[in-house]
Amino acid sequence: MSAARDRIFGRVRAAVHGRKRTDHPGDFLGWRPASSVTDAVAGFTEMFTAAGGEVVRLASMGLASTWLRDFAAGFTGVALGASLPDDFVPDFSLAQPESAELGVSTAVGAVAETGSLVLDARDGRRVQLLPPTHVVLLRKEVVYPTLAEALEVVSRDPPSAVGLHSGPSKSADIGQILVKGVHGPGRVIALLVG
């Protein structure tokens, strides 16, 4: 290993040596601990909507597929995530994420505590980010009460990258005025099934 590494470690050890080593305080109890969340779906919906996201809830995959077909009719060019079930995907005019107006992908989880969708790199990152509108298929079973729980689940078989998306892209860098859709999608819809 490098000499720089050795010197840095030498200084860290010298600094830490002799200082009282303190224990880790244990698990973080969120603002809505798991025990207090009776309905994770309602919690997610409230938080995701408050952040500017939209939630469309449908009872079955068939109904969701029909909704998506009708919704996508308003867009030219749809980019699809790699994990969408084949029988779910209606007949779209497909496009690459770079040119598509609509991106459709699948969430591997969602978080009630923070209103976040958990997106997996195996689904494709560009489809999650480049099209101005993003529809995310989300099954009710993978909506977790707390962020800690979702992080634990996603760590079991982790991809190279996970994105937590909590609403549309936004910025207030121009005069503190909120603008949506700066780099990522300005509109994000969780298509919640179940």
Binding site: S116, P158, G163, S166
Partner: peptide, 10 residues
């Protein structure tokens, strides 16, 4: 409650 985007990169 959380940043709009969080990247977790391995």
């Amino acid at each position: 409650p959380i940043g709009t985007y969080v990247s977790l990169i391995r």
